[in-house]
């Protein structure tokens, strides 16, 4: 019988980022990665945290390697943490801010990447406005360069999600069994999607998403998250509350009436936080909008771990860069031998 339909397309989409023997060679998404692999990332990051507290912070894992920061979308914060992470791994780092050209973007993108590959780059850290951009580069453009996804459209931001996992693990003694709520603009959030997959895989008891119907994506249950429209109900018995940044554009797109109404319904105040467990922690991927999604008293309060998240970011990025480089090298050398 003809075996035409989906024969290749239904395969596990996360396979692209793994070597033949199941190690990381790119880091594109948390979806489909095993609990063992996610835990290995967290353990490796933990080990780097101790090196970060030393006077000499560098380790030589990426010595002689060239890492290129390819940011097709601006982001000073994320780019800086990747830059620091690469430097602390002793890599050479090149920062490229590439405004997207208006015409034949695909072609421009490919030409740019091939040129960089020809300069013997070993790793691209990619941020791009299109969902799937990092996937596309890893699969179709430069598969022999390790690709680290630093955020693609609404799809994934896996290093942010992993630093969030590390934060939860360090502050809540593990992720298994925890109830986690993610609040706000889930629809446009690559961070939320990556968090949901990582939390489910690492054994969170429940992942809740809280927001108005306009900002919760259709069929979000299929990803393993439980939707709530009411903030207080959604926060009940939570161990972890993750607030997302609200972009101003949402008001113009008829997704929300006003910042004021959003804050009234979903802004994290001390009163609302009281619905969660008393020892619940509050997280935010930043940058925060005080008075829009979170009030200052909470952001700066005792339950907030927002600044800790930032300091773990470098360790997590060092971990995935080191692991992906090692996986990519072993894959390339085994292909050369074959």
């Amino acid at each position: 019988m003809t075996s035409l339909i989906h024969h290749e397309t239904l395969r596990d989409p996360s396979r692209v980022q793994l070597t033949d023997d199941g190690r990381l060679k790119h880091f594109l998404t948390t979806e489909g990665l095993s609990a063992e692999l996610l835990t290995e990332i967290l353990d490796t990051a933990d080990s780097f945290i101790s090196t970060q507290e030393r006077a000499v912070k560098k380790v030589p894992l990426l010595r002689g390697k060239t890492v290129v920061n390819l940011f097709f979308e601006n982001s000073t914060r994320t780019r800086s943490t990747f830059e620091l992470a690469a430097k602390r791994l002793s890599a050479d780092i090149l920062n490229l801010d590439i405004a997207r050209s208006a015409t034949s973007k695909g072609e421009t993108l490919m030409d740019t990447l091939w040129n960089l590959e020809a300069m013997y780059s070993d790793m691209f850290v990619v941020r791009h406005a299109d969902s799937g951009a990092a996937h596309f580069i890893a699969e179709q453009v430069t598969p022999n360069v390790a690709i680290i996804n630093a955020g693609d459209g609404r799809h994934a931001h896996p290093t942010q999600a992993m630093l969030d996992m590390l934060t939860i693990r360090r502050h809540k003694e593990g992720i298994a069994g925890k109830v986690v709520a993610i609040v706000g603009d889930i629809l446009h959030s690559r961070v939320a999607r990556s968090q949901i997959y990582a939390l489910r895989t690492l054994g969170a008891a429940e992942v809740r998403v809280i927001g108005p119907g306009t900002l919760l994506p259709k069929d979000i249950e299929a990803l393993g998250a439980k939707p709530f429209y009411d903030m207080k109900q959604g926060l009940a018995d939570c161990d972890v509350v993750i607030m997302l940044r609200l972009q101003k554009e949402r008001m113009q797109n008829a997704l929300l009436p006003s910042e004021g109404e959003f804050f009234k319904l979903y802004g994290l105040t001390e009163a609302k936080l009281a619905c969660a467990r008393p020892d619940a922690i509050v997280m935010h991927p930043g940058p925060i909008n005080r008075g829009v999604e979170i009030e200052s008293a909470v952001a700066d309060g005792p339950q907030s771990v927002i600044l800790n998240q930032v300091s773990y970011g470098i360790a997590v990025r060092m971990a995935v860069m080191a692991m992906a480089m090692s996986g990519q090298q072993s894959q390339n050398s085994s292909e050369e031998m074959a």
Binding site: E31, S131, G132, D152, G153, R154, H155, A156, R190, R193, P217, K218, D219, I220, A222, L223
Partner: peptide, 15 residues
């Protein structure tokens, strides 16, 4: 198409 696959891939959907 707007549905579980578009949500999973983070691609803007057409309802």
């Amino acid at each position: 198409h707007e549905g579980p696959v578009s949500t999973r891939l983070g691609l803007p959907g057409i309802p």
